[in-house]
Structures are given as structure tokens and as C-alpha cells.
């Protein structure tokens, strides 16, 4: 694996392999000494042009647990705020000697540009670009789902998600998480239904490998009695909204919010995911977020193991830059 730019880059075998490596990484995180020597002497640069708490700290923890040197760079307080271009920033990183660059950028396609323009030799890991993709989030979601549906830590090793039904509800239009999840879950054999108000569905969503619906209750009741195994609530990205996409927060919450009543419609084994940060009371209610079905805190812990697996597969072997 040279770069990880899109969830679509992964074949079923590669994705299952990565999840299996993540299981082993997760097992090492239960030990007293969590550090592994696999990436000793490698340098990982976290290049964050956009605010982030969990993704940045998660990547930082993952790289450090593998003994890589980590340089975290956020646009605020850097020369980017003085107007430095992506290219010049990239060449600076090249000169510093980065082996991998974890990049988050508000422009869709920035990681792809970084990986393919020949500015740097380092591997590029997309940590979220605009409204395009966020592949490691999809991987940690798939990892969390596989554990939940296959019976706990290590139980699902070697398996995909064939037959699982996942409802993804919320602001699909602005969500890179939704796109990456649809692509990856489809690769892994799951059936995904996107649910959103028509104003929050992107153009061309009909071509995505999933079903699309606008009625959440109908989607949770399932078609032909097949109810979903998991519900993923997406954050309403108010900061990206330049217009009124729905009449009021209350109406959105009534029609598309995940709450205790809606979760009660699901089969007993079904789980609730949310990529965070949550708008409690908007797309998710507090009783749902803190309830027994919620795997939201687990997702964060799994994020470290999944990102360790991605960094390990990119950097530990001979193919690395």
C-alpha cells in the first residue's frame, strides 16, 4: 500500500487484511507497554489544514505507539496562514524527510494532488478532504461493525461484512464519512441505505453502490422484514452550510434524529455509530448516544488500532518510500 487516498482504493482482500492487522494492533493496546518498534526511525507528518480533535490525536497516538517520529503541523500558526501554497508546504516536508504525510484539507482532492504531483516521495494518507473522503474513518467504522456483529475482539478475523445491513442517516451532502463508508462497506459485502432529506443528498448519489431513502422510520423498519444491523448517524455540518437546508433544527431532529424510540425499532443485536463530534439533540439524542447500543466511544479507541494498521502496512515493509 503506497498511499491511502480513497476507500475505493482497497480491494475486499486488502480491506479484510487491514482489519485483521488492526485486530492484532488492538490486542497490543491492552498491554502495559503499548509501544511497538515497527516504525522506528520513520517520520510521520500530520498536516492538518482543518480543525480536528479526534482524527489528529488518533493518528498521532497511532504513529507514536509504532515508534515513529511524529511532527504535527496545523495550518493555524504555520506559514500557511501567511499564504504559503500546498506545493511549498509539501516541499518543506520533503526537505525535512517525511516518510508519510497524513493530510486533512478543506479542499476535496488535496491529498490526491499531494500524492500524484511528484512534489514529495512520502506516502500520503487522506485524513479527510473537503466533502470527498475519509477512508480511515470508514475503516474504523467497519472494524467496529465487524466486532459488534461477529461477536467481539478477534472473533471476526478473516471475515468481511457480507449480509450486514447498515443505515447511514443525516447530512450526506457535506459528509466525507458517508462516501467513504458507502464505498468500503459495499466492498466488504454490506448493504448500505443512505437516509437524508432531499436537500442534503449530493448530486449523483444514484450512482453510488447503495440504496437511497428519505424516510428514516421506513428504513429502520426495513424492507421485507430485514431490519438494519447498524445505524450510523452523521453530524449535521453547520459550518459548511451556506444556505438553509432544512426548515428548523426541531423538524430535522424529529424526522432524521436518532433517539431511543427509533433505536427500539431495531433488532436486539443492532448497534449505533457516530463519527463525532456529535450535535446532541440534533442528529442524535443524549439517551441514544449514551445508551447500550452506542459504540461511539469504542469507535475512538478502534480508530487508533485501525490507523496503526494503516501506517504499519504503508511504512513497515520494503515497498515504503
Amino acid at each position: 500500500m503506497r498511499h491511502l487516498l480513497s476507500a475505493a482504493d482497497l480491494s475486499r482482500e486488502q480491506a479484510v487484511h487491514l482489519l485483521d492487522v488492526a485486530e492484532q494492533m488492538a490486542a497490543t493496546q491492552q498491554r502495559e507497554i503499548k509501544k511497538l518498534p515497527a516504525l522506528r526511525g520513520r517520520t510521520v507528518v500530520n498536516l492538518f489544514f482543518e480543525d480536528s480533535t479526534r482524527t489528529r490525536t488518533s493518528f498521532e497516538a497511532a504513529a507514536k505507539r509504532l515508534s515513529a517520529d511524529v511532527i504535527t503541523f496545523s495550518a493555524k500558526g504555520s506559514s500557511v496562514s501567511k499564504g504559503e501554497s500546498l506545493k511549498d508546504t509539501a516541499m518543506t516536508l520533503e526537505a525535512i524527510g517525511a516518510d508519510a504525510v497524513v493530510v486533512r484539507h478543506s479542499a476535496s482532492g488535496a491529498p490526491h494532488r499531494l500524492a500524484t504531483s511528484g512534489w514529495i516521495r512520502a506516502g500520503v494518507l487522506n485524513a479527510g478532504d473537503g466533502t470527498h473522503e475519509h477512508p480511515t474513518q470508514a475503516l474504523l467504522d467497519a472494524f467496529t461493525l465487524r466486532r459488534a456483529l461477529r461477536g467481539g475482539a478477534g472473533a471476526g478475523t478473516g471475515t468481511d461484512l457480507a449480509g450486514a445491513r447498515v443505515v447511514v442517516v443525516g447530512d450526506v451532502l457535506h459528509s466525507r464519512v458517508a462516501r467513504s463508508n458507502v464505498l468500503l462497506l459495499h466492498t466488504l459485502g454490506a448493504r448500505v441505505t443512505l437516509v437524508a432529506p432531499p436537500t442534503l443528498l449530493p448530486v449523483g448519489v444514484g450512482a453510488w453502490p447503495c440504496e437511497v431513502a428519505t424516510d428514516l422510520d421506513a428504513a429502520l423498519a426495513g424492507s421485507g422484514g430485514a431490519r438494519p444491523d447498524a445505524v450510523m448517524a452523521l453530524r449535521v455540518q453547520l459550518e459548511r452550510m451556506d444556505a438553509a437546508y432544512f426548515p428548523s433544527a426541531r423538524e430535522y431532529s424529529r424526522r432524521y434524529g436518532v433517539d431511543g424510540r427509533r433505536l427500539a425499532l431495531l433488532p436486539d443485536h443492532a448497534v449505533l455509530l457516530h463519527p463525532g463530534p456529535m450535535n446532541r439533540g440534533l442528529e442524535i439524542s443524549a439517551d441514544a448516544a449514551d445508551g447500550v447500543r452506542s459504540r461511539i466511544v469504542e469507535q475512538v479507541a478502534n480508530g487508533v488500532a485501525t490507523r496503526m494498521a494503516a501506517l504499519y502496512l504503508m511504512l513497515a515493509g520494503e515497498d515504503a518510500a
Binding site: 492484532q24 490486542a27 502496512l313 513497515a316 515493509g317 520494503e318 515497498d319 515504503a320
Partner: peptide, 17 residues
């Protein structure tokens, strides 16, 4: 992950401990 020839092969999946 403790092998000294880790860099000489494509990355291999760790086994369970």
C-alpha cells in the same frame, strides 16, 4: 514487529500474542 528484517519484506500481518 520486532524483526530486524522488517524493512526487507512487504509488510506482514502480525500473529497473535
Amino acid at each position: 514487529m520486532h524483526r530486524d528484517d522488517l524493512r526487507r519484506h512487504p509488510a506482514r500481518a502480525p500473529w497473535p500474542t
